[in-house]
Lab assay of single mutants.
Amino acid sequence: KHLIERYYHQLTEGCGNEACTNEFCASCPTFLRMDNNAAAIKALELYKINAKLCDPH
């Protein structure tokens, strides 16, 4: 559950690194913003595939 919350935060708030290159992070310049419901679904999907989590900045 904690990991899913981290994915959700990364998708909605980002890691804080303006030069982030993680396509699944709101801080990445090319990230496409999504609403909270879509972010919750995506967080579950990312958890299932063990996607990369950013280190908070």
Rank of each mutant, 00 (worst) to 15 (best):
Asn37Lys: 07
Gly14His: 00
Leu32Glu: 14
Thr21His: 13
Asp35Ala: 09
Ala19His: 12
Cys25Leu: 00
Asn17Arg: 10
Cys20Thr: 01
His57Val: 15
Tyr7Ile: 04
Leu46Met: 06
Tyr7Glu: 00
Ser27Glu: 02
Asn36Val: 11
Asn50Phe: 06
His9Trp: 09
Arg33Lys: 14
Ala26Asp: 01
Gln10Ser: 07
Gly14Gln: 00
Leu3His: 14
His2Pro: 06
His57Cys: 15
Tyr47Cys: 14
Asn17Ala: 13
Tyr7Lys: 01
Ala19Ser: 12
Cys28Trp: 05
His9Leu: 15
Leu44Gly: 15
Ala40Asn: 14
Ala43Val: 04
Ala19Ile: 07
Met34Lys: 04
Arg6Ile: 05
Gln10Trp: 01
Leu44Trp: 05
Glu45Tyr: 04
Asp35Ser: 12
Ala38Tyr: 15
Glu23Cys: 08
Cys25Gln: 01
Lys1Leu: 02
Thr21Asn: 15
Ser27His: 04
Leu3Lys: 13
Tyr8Ala: 09
Cys28Ser: 09
Leu11Ala: 05
Asn17Phe: 07
Glu18Met: 13
Pro56Cys: 10
Leu44Met: 10
Cys20Ala: 00
Asn36His: 05
Lys1Phe: 02
Asn37Pro: 07
Met34Ser: 10
Glu45Trp: 03
Cys28Gln: 06
Thr12Asn: 05
Tyr47Arg: 14
Gly14Arg: 00
Asn22Arg: 02
Ile41Tyr: 06
Tyr8Pro: 01
Gly14Tyr: 00
Glu5Arg: 13
Lys1Val: 02
Gly16Trp: 04
Asn36Ser: 14
Gly16Tyr: 06
Asn37Gln: 12
Cys25Gly: 00
Arg33Asp: 04
Gln10Val: 03
Gln10Phe: 03
Asp55Pro: 11
Glu13Gly: 09
Leu3Gln: 13
Asn22Glu: 04
Arg6Asp: 11
Tyr7Ser: 01
Ala39Ser: 06
Gln10Lys: 02
Asp55Asn: 13
Glu45Ala: 08
His9Thr: 14
Leu44Ala: 15
His2Trp: 02
Leu11Gly: 01
Met34Pro: 10
Phe24Lys: 10
Leu53Pro: 04
Glu13Met: 07
Leu53Lys: 08
Leu53Arg: 10
Tyr7Pro: 00
Thr30Lys: 13
Lys1Ile: 09
Lys42His: 07
Asp35Asn: 07
Ala19Trp: 08
Glu18Gly: 09
Pro29Ile: 06
Leu32Tyr: 04
Asn17His: 12
His2Glu: 09
Cys28Gly: 05
Leu32Pro: 15
Ala26Arg: 07
Arg33Ser: 10
Arg6His: 11
Glu5Ser: 12
Leu3Ala: 03
Asn22Ala: 03
Ser27Tyr: 02
Ala38Trp: 06
Thr30Gln: 10
His2Leu: 13
Gly16Phe: 04
Ala43Asn: 01
Cys15Met: 00
Met34Gly: 06
Gly16Arg: 06
Met34Thr: 06
Glu23Met: 12
Cys15Tyr: 00
Asn22Gly: 03
Ala19Val: 12
Ala39Gly: 08
Leu44Lys: 15
Asn36Thr: 11
Asn17Thr: 13
Ala51Thr: 12
Thr30Asp: 08
Ile41Cys: 11
Pro29His: 10
Thr12Asp: 03
Thr12Glu: 03
His57Asn: 15
Cys25Thr: 00
Tyr7Leu: 05
Glu13Ser: 13
Leu44Arg: 15
Lys48Asp: 13
Ser27Gly: 08
Cys25Val: 00
Arg6Leu: 07
Phe24Cys: 11
Tyr7Thr: 01
Cys28His: 06
Asn37Leu: 03
Lys48Tyr: 02
Pro56Ser: 08
Gly16Met: 05
Ser27Leu: 02
Leu46Trp: 02
Glu23Ile: 10
Pro29Gly: 08
Leu32Asp: 10
Glu18Pro: 15
Ala26Thr: 03
Lys1Gly: 02
Pro56Ala: 11
Asn50Ser: 14
Phe31Lys: 07
Leu46Phe: 09
Asn22Asp: 02
Asp35Gly: 10
Asn17Trp: 13
Asp55Ala: 10
Arg6Ala: 12
Asn17Val: 10
Tyr47Leu: 14
Cys25Tyr: 01
Ala38Val: 14
Asp55Gln: 13
Thr30Val: 08
His9Arg: 14
Glu13Tyr: 12
Ala40Tyr: 04
Thr30Cys: 12
Tyr47His: 15
Tyr47Gly: 13
Asn22Met: 02
His9Val: 12
Glu13Val: 08
Cys28Ile: 03
Tyr7Phe: 11
Phe24Pro: 01
Cys25Arg: 00
Asn22Phe: 02
Glu45Asn: 15
Glu5Leu: 06
Glu18Trp: 05
Cys54Arg: 07
Cys54Tyr: 00
Gly16Glu: 10
Arg33Glu: 12
Ile41Gln: 15
Asn17Ile: 09
Glu18Asn: 15
Asp35His: 04
Ala39Ile: 08
Leu53Asp: 03
Asp55Glu: 12
Tyr7Cys: 02
Ile4Cys: 06
Ile4Pro: 07
Met34His: 07
His57Ser: 03
Pro29Met: 04
Ala43Ile: 00
Ile4Thr: 15
Lys1Glu: 03
Leu46Pro: 02
Phe31Met: 15
Ile41His: 15
Leu46Gly: 05
Leu53Met: 08
Ala40Asp: 14
Cys28Tyr: 09
Thr12Val: 11
Cys20Phe: 00
Leu32Cys: 08
Phe24Ile: 11
Tyr47Asn: 13
Glu13Trp: 05
Met34Trp: 05
Tyr7Trp: 05
Lys48Met: 02
Arg6Asn: 12
Glu5Phe: 06
Leu44Val: 13
Leu46Val: 09
His9Lys: 15
Ala39Gln: 03
Gln10Cys: 03
Glu23Leu: 07
Phe31Trp: 04
Glu45Gln: 06
Leu11Lys: 01
Ala26Lys: 14
Ala38Cys: 08
Thr12Pro: 00
Ala39Asp: 02
Leu32Met: 15
Asn50Gly: 12
Ala51Pro: 03
Glu13His: 12
Cys28Arg: 08
Pro56Lys: 09
Phe24Arg: 07
Glu18Thr: 13
Asn17Cys: 10
